[in-house]
């Protein structure tokens, strides 16, 4: 639970990342309990769905504010996708759009005091990155067959360099899901931990000097909202680039 409001004391800065069961469920020996993390995932989906479905309900020729917001978010991701992938990969756009919206709303929900940030858990970000990685790899082989292995040979490199370059390329390709997931997870973890640590100074310093960390927390909340958006953007654009690589190789 993110106690960003700073109610002081005993909790560790990492306590906000603890997962708490709300409804215990166990199937086949696996713990599938409905937790605070699940709650915020469901909330993110409901928010996203109602934002889009209700915003586009009228589908007016001249959009109102809400519909404009929906269209702007669509145009934003669509423009991003168009610039990096192009028309050819059109059918993969919903995946990118879903990931962007899910991560963005998850990050932003995490900015509410006492809420939970499901994107601050490596298993969640890694699962999404793994889906992207596996999907893109399948796409590359489906599109190019065995020629997709040529992706690991840098174009124009002398053959003598291949034994050195190919392992580097393979390792960099395999590390994609790790960098993709760790980037998002670490940003969320670090930001929320920092907020909690600095907020912890407020009650310690008292009402006079506590103003300094309070001001810092306010500034950091602004920064964190920016990062919440930025990380969703980075995740989406990297997904687009990977799709583009799979479609067009080099």
């Amino acid at each position: 639970m993110a106690e960003n409001g700073g109610s002081g004391g005993g909790h560790s800065p990492l306590a906000q990342f603890e997962i708490k069961e709300i409804v215990p469920i166990e199937i086949g020996g696996l713990d599938l309990s409905f937790t605070n993390s699940s709650l915020f995932m469901v909330a993110a989906v409901m928010l996203a769905a109602s934002f889009f479905l209700l915003g586009m309900r009228r589908g007016a020729l001249v959009p109102g504010r809400w519909q404009s917001a929906v269209e702007i978010s669509y145009e934003f991701v669509a423009g991003l996708f168009r610039d990096t992938v192009g028309q050819e990969g059109r059918q993969y756009f919903p995946v990118v759009f879903t990931l962007f919206m899910f991560i963005l709303i998850g990050n932003l929900l995490g900015m509410l005091p006492y809420s939970f940030t499901f994107t601050s858990h490596i298993i969640v970000t890694f699962a999404m990155a793994a889906v992207v990685f596996i999907g893109v790899t399948i796409l590359g082989f489906a599109k190019h067959g065995m020629r997709f292995f040529a992706f690991f040979v840098p174009p124009g490199a002398p053959v003598a360099m291949w034994p050195l370059l190919i392992p580097i390329e393979v390792i960099s390709y395999l590390s994609r899901p790790i960098s993709l997931s760790v980037r998002l997870f670490a940003n969320m973890l670090a930001g929320h931990t920092l907020l909690k640590v600095i907020a912890g100074f407020i009650p310690v310093l008292g009402i006079v000097f506590g103003v300094i960390p309070l001001a810092l927390v306010v500034a950091l909340v602004g920064l964190e909202i920016l990062i919440a958006f930025l990380q969703a953007y980075v995740f989406a654009i990297l997904t687009c680039l990977y799709i583009n690589d799979a479609l067009h190789m080099h």
Binding site: I19, L30, S38, M41, V45, A127, M128
Partner: peptide
Amino acid sequence: MPQLDPSFFSTQLVWLFLTLVPLYLIL
């Protein structure tokens, strides 16, 4: 660090799947 506790991995993965897939289908 709660993130590294594998006992919570299964619930998160399942709920991620149960939320992300419907969101994808709706969108």
